[in-house]
Write a protein that binds this DNA or RNA. Structure first.
Lengths: 120, 120
DNA sequence: CTCAATGTTCGATGTTCGTGAAACATCGAA
DNA sequence: TTCGATGTTTCACGAACATCGAACATTGAG
């Protein structure tokens, strides 16, 4: 389905540290965050990761539930984006620290976008 | 024992993000980090947490293995301190973000120091 | 040497997590 | 309505984790 039973997005002030740490405690999810770090919204189907789609769905849900990402549903497909504003407001510097470290360590490089991803 | 079989402290450049995120993905460990955030060295026995000592030992090991803390052994007792410098060097802003968020959310408040902790 | 103190390690137990296959639900098109 | 596309949920499983009590190892004191 594209409709989720309980696609809860925590309110900005409901985002808690432990959940975020838990969400980022996985190379694949850090990779997803890196991909989304361009600030743009990306189609679910554009995301490329070496796991089954059910697993990808699971990871995206963890990120969503933790308040790291926001998922919007449009018709039969979904678009994901990083909640950078909310995260920066609640944990100033955290996201930058994570992205910086991930970049320097080449963490989550196995996650990417489809070739036909909107580059513009 | 007070002597550990393999008390490995990762070198500054061996500290990796996932391990640190994993180490901080637990209220009790965040609490320990908060207590150690004063920059001073604290005696193992001064640490107060609502868990069995074997559990506390386990958590301190996770923090140590991740490179978050450093444990020094002196005679029959141990002293723990936060590796703030190494962490700040490797993940600028991360520790501050975590400490700030933990403080604002009252996270890890069930961890503390003994009453006779060296306040000076 | 013998003891007490101090942490660590070792099972054991129950929980959470990452994973994939398969079934399912929803939407848009034919 | 019937189909195909798109994600989600369920189920099952092994691995990792948090927790505790008990046994253990090391050190310093008597």
């Amino acid at each position: 389905m594209v409709a989720m039973k309980q696609a809860r997005h925590p309110a900005p002030d409901e985002i808690n540290l432990i959940d975020v740490m838990g969400a980022l405690n996985d190379p694949l999810r850090v990779g997803l965050v890196r991909v989304l770090a361009d600030g743009r919204e990306h189609g679910w189907g554009e995301l490329r990761a070496p796991v089954a789609k059910s697993t990808l769905s699971h990871h995206l849900r963890v990120l969503r539930d933790a308040g790291v990402t926001r998922t919007r549903q449009e018709g039969t497909r979904c678009f994901v984006e990083l909640r950078r504003g909310d995260l920066d407001a609640r944990f100033p510097g955290l996201l930058d620290a994570v992205l910086g470290a991930a970049h320097r360590d080449g963490l989550g490089t196995h996650v990417g976008l489809a070739d036909d991803a909107p580059t513009t």
